[in-house]
């Protein structure tokens, strides 16, 4: 059933204008952020690197050498020490490389961290593929624990020829409050481990 518009033209107009207002609110809250994310993903703007990449057999371009630099930053209030083991590597496009980050939780409590990648130059973003990365999931480090965090990547042979250096930066965030279930499951595991012997 179609609801009739009000007889009074003023009320009909006001209904339409009010609907426009609500539509713009919905646009701002529910449509703009997903469009923005998709737009950034497609274009590689903002240096947001993509998710897991399925490695395909492709030729290694031995002619070119690309310098890939690694950075690590702690977001404010994150007490972990967090750094790459090498500052930079030189790789041929198409070859799979693995590098490691080191993370250490010096505090007396279990914490969960999340690394967020960002890459410059932006135009290289869609040519930098990660086949395996610690940034795909949250890292749980118990009090005083350290971890070796591997990252496997391939630089696409189609990388634009003017790009010689790629810089990949990770910002490490404290997300302990957001993932209480990770802490609980780890506590259960350690309880079982101590109960066994």
């Amino acid at each position: 059933m179609k609801l009739p518009m009000p007889q009074n033209p003023i009320h009909a107009l006001c209904l339409k204008l009010g609907a426009l207002g609500f539509a713009m609110f919905a646009f701002a809250v529910w449509i703009m952020p997903p469009i923005y994310d998709v737009f950034c993903e497609v274009t590689g703007l903002n240096g947001k690197t993509g998710g897991r990449y399925e490695a395909r057999v492709a030729g290694v371009d031995n002619e070119r050498l690309i310098t890939v630099q690694f950075l690590a930053t702690n977001n404010e209030g994150m007490p972990w020490s967090f750094a790459p083991e090498v500052q930079s590597v030189r790789v041929h496009p198409g070859e799979q490389t693995v590098i490691h980050y080191r993370a250490h939780n010096p505090t007396g409590k279990d914490m969960v961290g999340q690394a967020i990648p960002s890459l410059v130059p932006f135009k290289a973003t869609s040519y930098f593929h990660k086949t395996e990365c610690f940034c795909f999931e949250q890292q749980l480090l118990k009090a005083g624990e350290s971890a070796d965090l591997p990252m496997y990547f391939i630089v696409d042979p189609d990388l634009p020829s003017q790009v010689h250096t790629i810089t990949l930066s990770y910002a490490l965030f404290d997300v302990t409050d957001r993932y209480p279930e990770l802490l609980v499951s780890s506590a259960q595991l350690s309880n079982e481990a101590t109960a066994q012997p």
């Binding site: 539509a23 713009m24 609110f25 646009f27 701002a28 809250v29 703009m32 910002a171």
Partner: peptide, 24 residues
């Protein structure tokens, strides 16, 4: 309404644990 939307997203980020503007 877009202004109302952006402050609403702030409100959600501050009080309801969403991450519209939080990279973490």
């Amino acid at each position: 309404p877009v202004l109302a939307g952006v402050v609403t997203m702030m409100l959600m980020d501050i009080h309801f644990g969403t991450s519209f503007f939080n990279a973490a």
